[in-house]
Simulated assay, not measured.
Amino acid sequence: MILLISDLHLEEERPDITRAFLHFLQTRAPQAEALYILGDFFEVWIGDDAMTPFQRSIAQALRTLSERGTRIYLMHGNRDFMLGKHFCRAAGCELLADPTVVSLQGERTLLMHGDSLCTRDEGYMRLRRLLRNPLTLVILRNLPLATRQKLARKLRNESRTQTRMKASDIIDVTPEEVVRAMREHRARRLIHGHTHRPAIHALELDGQPAQRIVLGDWDRQGWALQIDEQGFNQAPFELA
């Protein structure tokens, strides 16, 4: 069995999500060969050197799962793209590039966070290119902690305001970009998060059937995609 989740947005202000995730790690995840976390695991991450006790406790919980035999893979999201090797070592997980191709049930499967597919949101795409630039990352990591905290709050507030103002199709994936990415990586299955619109979409790619699976976010309920001998099944569950 393999499990995939994304968009937990873990933060101390949402203890209900944290409790649900820890319960998930203790009960369901140990049965899995691998757990993939496809971005926005934390609501905000300003650097491994600024880990809080809360974030360290999450790392320890992941390490406990890893030591029980479940492989853990973590991908950057737009909220936590500064997660680094120090956290991954502490958590016993492997950091995946975005995008990454893996084999799931013998099928080439493209894994992404999903924000890079939202090309109609031109303002966000410009900001994304700036923030992911290697030079920008070096500068950000060397800013004083207080400055990084202030910048993170500013970006977070602006993101929430702009998301409320944008049309729904602007903040969703661009169909043409989905096809382009799948074609580039020679994958007929794509799994991503980011849009908070859990669904399984049937597609046609170069005359062949294809599939796009959107992972659900953890807010009013939790979501996990389970892959086993029964196939692919994504279902919500109560956070309580």
Rank of each mutant, 00 (worst) to 15 (best):
K150D: 10
C93N: 02
L110F: 11
D80V: 00
R68I: 04
R63V: 01
A187C: 15
A32P: 09
M182G: 03
T195R: 05
D16Y: 10
I17T: 13
V173S: 08
D40V: 06
L83G: 01
W223V: 01
D217I: 08
P15R: 04
T100V: 09
Q208S: 13
T109D: 04
M182P: 05
I58L: 14
A210N: 10
G123R: 12
Q31V: 07
V138L: 11
M1G: 13
T64D: 12
F54M: 04
D48M: 08
L8W: 10
R141N: 15
L151D: 10
E94P: 00
G222V: 01
H113S: 05
L83Y: 07
L65C: 06
T52D: 08
A202C: 06
T64I: 11
Q230A: 15
P209Y: 09
A181P: 00
L203S: 04
A29W: 07
P53T: 02
E184W: 00
V214E: 03
N157H: 00
E33N: 14
D228I: 07
L145G: 02
L35G: 02
I191Q: 04
S116L: 06
H194D: 14
E11I: 06
G77P: 03
S6Q: 12
G47F: 05
D169S: 13
F54A: 02
N78H: 02
R148H: 09
I17A: 03
L145C: 08
E43Y: 10
A199C: 11
N233P: 00
E94G: 00
Q149R: 09
L239A: 10
R63F: 13
T174V: 09
L117Y: 11
S57H: 09
L83I: 13
D49G: 12
M112Y: 04
T136D: 03
T163S: 15
Q60V: 05
R89C: 08
H113T: 05
R183A: 14
M51R: 10
Q162G: 01
L225P: 08
A167T: 14
K154S: 12
G77Y: 04
N142M: 10
F54P: 01
K166R: 15
R220H: 13
S159C: 03
R120I: 02
R68Y: 01
A202V: 06
R14H: 14
V102T: 06
Q60S: 13
R129E: 15
